[in-house]
């Protein structure tokens, strides 16, 4: 099936003018599957980390939201062990007027401001609420262990 013009244009634009700290490129075998990298935002516990994600545009995109998942382990109250992300625009707040770029920017923003009151991983969220400093330290440890190239 031919790729819709929307996906072609979005891909071109993503490659031509990438958003700061984000890179996304379609896989060679499947133009709907994107390899994504997000750089941990500075002043967040994820600073210095490079996070790999996968993004898939389902058949009914853009009427349905893209499917996004972290491949790199991350300690975050809204991201679970399998890398699934709790983000409203990926679920019921999706609008076809949103794009791959807006989704990735939202995920980047989520890294800067974790929301332990709407958790996906209850254990992480509890730690975050009860002792934020130690949670942030754990997140920093995980960043060092899992998200830095040298390791």
């Amino acid at each position: 099936m031919a790729l819709p013009k929307r996906i072609i244009k979005e891909t071109q634009r993503l490659l031509a003018e990438p958003a700061p700290g984000i890179s996304a490129s379609p896989s060679e075998e499947n133009a709907r599957y994107f390899n994504v990298m997000i750089i941990g935002p500075s002043t967040s516990p994820y600073e210095g980390g490079v996070y790999k994600l996968e993004l898939y545009l389902p058949e009914d995109y853009p009427m349905a939201a893209p499917k996004v998942r972290f491949l790199t382990k991350i300690y975050h109250p809204n991201i679970d062990k399998l890398g699934r992300i709790c983000l409203d625009i990926l679920k019921d707040k999706w609008s076809p007027a949103l794009q791959i770029r807006t989704v990735l920017l939202s995920i980047q923003a989520l890294l800067s401001s974790p929301n332990p009151d709407d958790p996906l991983d209850e254990n992480v969220a509890r730690q975050w609420r009860e002792d934020e400093n130690s949670a942030i330290n754990t997140a920093k440890d995980w960043t060092r262990i899992y998200a830095m190239q040298d390791n």
């Binding site: 819709p4 013009k5 929307r6 244009k9 979005e10 853009p62 076809p96 007027a97």
Partner: peptide, 12 residues
């Protein structure tokens, strides 16, 4: 790009 004939969903 202010273009009233361009659809912001399908980019056509």
């Amino acid at each position: 790009a202010v273009d009233p004939s361009l659809c912001g969903i399908c980019f056509e």
